[in-house]
Amino acid sequence: MNNRKFIYILLLILSWELISRVVGNDQLMPTSLVIAEKLWYELIEGKLWLYAFYSIVAIFIGLGISTILALSISLFSIKYKWVMDFFKFLNSILHPLPGIAILPILIIWFGVGYKAIFALVIHSVLWPIITNLFLALETFPKTLSMVGDNYEMGLLRKFWYIYFPGIMPSFISGIKTGWARAFRAVISAEMFFGVIGATGGLGWYLVKKRVFLDTTGIFAGLVVIIIIGIILERFVFNKLEKITIEKWGLKS
C-alpha cells in the first residue's frame, strides 16, 4: 500500500469519527473505535469468520464448477464450430440477466440451500468466463495449433498443453469479473435464505444483525465484506492477472 492510500484511509476514519461523534447515536452511526471493538468481538466470539468462510467456500466451489464447465465448452468449441455458436447465442441471452433475478426460479428448482447458491454462482461466473475464453479462442494463433498437429497431439493434449495456457490470461480476467458478480449475488441470496449449513453466510449475518437492531454488528459485517473484496480482487486476482500478462508478454 502506498503512502497516499494510507493517508486516505486515515482521513476516512477521522471523518467517520468526527461525524459519528456529532451524530452521537450508536444505533445510527457508531464511532470507529466501537466498530473496531465489535469487529474483534464478532470475529472471535460471534464466529463472524465462520460466516465469511461459508460465503467464500460457496463462491469458490461455484467457481470451480464453472471453470470445469467453461473449459469443457471451450474444448468442444475447438472441435465443433456449432458448439461455440450455440453457447455464444446462449451467452447473449443469459449474460445480461442479473443473478439475483433468477433466484426465485432457482429456489423452486433446487430448494433453499447450497444447490441454489451454487447454481447462482455458476450463472454469475460462467458467462463472463465464456465471453473471455471465446474471444481468446477466436484470435488464437493458427500456427500454435499447427505445432500441436505437427507433433501428432490429440485434441485433449493440444488443449491442455497449447490452448489452455494460451488462453490463460483471458481465463483469469474472466474469473476476476465473474468473482465480483458472484460475491454480490451470493450475499444477496444469503439474505433470502437464512441459515444453511451450520451458520449461514455473510448475507444472513447482516440480516440477523438488522433484526436485533445491532447497528455496530452490521458495520462489522460490512468491514469484513470490504476486506474480503479487497484481498481477493487486489491481492489474488490482480496479482494472477499481472503475472500472466507479464509472462505472456501481452502488456502493450
Binding site: 494463433p141 500454435l144 498437429d149 505437427n150 509472462k247 501481452l250
Partner: peptide, 20 residues
C-alpha cells in the same frame, strides 16, 4: 493424410512460439 513429426513446418509469423 495428416501432419506428422517427420515433416515439420516453420512459419514467418512470430506467434508460432509458445509465449509462456
Amino acid at each position: 493424410k495428416k501432419p506428422d513429426r517427420n515433416r515439420i513446418i516453420v512459419f514467418q509469423t512470430f506467434d508460432q512460439l509458445l509465449p509462456w
